[in-house]
Simulated scan of single mutants.
Amino acid sequence: MPIPDSADLDRAADILRGRSLAILTGAGVSTDSGIPDYRGPGAPVRKPMTGPEFRASAERRRRYWAGAFLGGRLMRAAKPNPTHRLLAAWERSGRALGIATQNVDGLHRQAGTRKLVELHGGLDRVVCLSCEQGFARQAITDQIARENPWLAQLGPEDADRLNPDGDAEVPELDGFTVPVCTVCGGPLKPDVVFFGETVPSARFARARSIVHRADALLVLGSSLTVNTGIRLLDQARRDGSPIITINRGTTGGASRATLVLEGSVAPALHALDERLAH
């Protein structure tokens, strides 16, 4: 796996040494757990579900939940990788004041991070679009299995590819019964921010507070193509805090960063950790 130049890592360590850090993570942090990203080098072209089409189209909801049933098996099998665990250790030691993540896989929580803002929500929760009743994702998975017993015959190999939001590309599944709210019968949606939707203001404010209180911002595994990440970079710039990004491939907002490192997150972060330890 490519790793940033040693001199650049030395410079990053010099910038971050002795500073409290805010961490912003994207899909590149979870690729080592088997969860793909949307835009990394070599990633296939993906068409993510958007919020407006999910709400407007019963057929799109049907396709989503069929794919999510199969994709959910793969997501549940994913475990925190060394990057998640190292960042949790940084939080425990006080080096990291908190983590804001664009990921919905819950792996930061599983790794033990407590000061965490899941900007785009979490796949382990489901909400009714009509009455706003919340459900555990497992309860909805169980409902899908009961109402579609033939799905037990399908395995992960029946999904063409897994998306970072837990959805999977699936062939047409005739006869699939879409889960509904057991309180009012309304349509259900995973409690995540789809493309075309806005991060709740209170949630974003918590992330912005972490950035504002920290002495530096470290961005890991994010292409920074969505507005939420850019707004956090702008907060750090207003505060006069240095910004360092580590990502494979092109990173948006590079002109805002103090230092841009290109390479795989895991080896780069562990190399940086070794330098900060001295």
Rank of each mutant, 00 (worst) to 15 (best):
D174A: 15
L16V: 06
P2D: 10
G18L: 07
C184F: 12
L24I: 03
L162H: 07
G240R: 07
T101F: 03
L276N: 03
R208M: 11
R109C: 02
L233F: 14
R61T: 10
A271F: 00
G34T: 12
E91R: 12
T258R: 06
I243H: 08
G26F: 11
D158C: 08
Q153P: 00
Q138V: 13
D234A: 14
H212I: 10
G186C: 09
T83D: 00
V170D: 01
A12F: 03
C131S: 02
R238W: 02
R137M: 02
Q235T: 15
A207S: 11
R11W: 00
I35L: 12
W150P: 02
A77Q: 13
P242N: 07
V199P: 10
P82H: 05
F194H: 04
P156G: 08
V45T: 10
R137W: 15
L259A: 07
Q153G: 12
G221C: 07
P242D: 01
F54Q: 10
D5K: 12
L24W: 00
V226S: 09
T113Y: 11
A202Y: 05
N103L: 06
R17E: 01
A202S: 10
P156S: 07
S223R: 11
I15V: 15
W90F: 07
T101R: 00
A77H: 03
L173R: 08
E91C: 09
H84Q: 02
G253R: 06
Q102D: 02
P187V: 05
D14F: 05
T141C: 04
V170C: 10
Q235F: 09
G72M: 01
T113C: 11
D32G: 13
S57Q: 05
P48D: 02
W90D: 13
G26Y: 10
L21K: 05
E262A: 14
G166N: 07
L123A: 04
V183M: 09
W150D: 13
A100H: 02
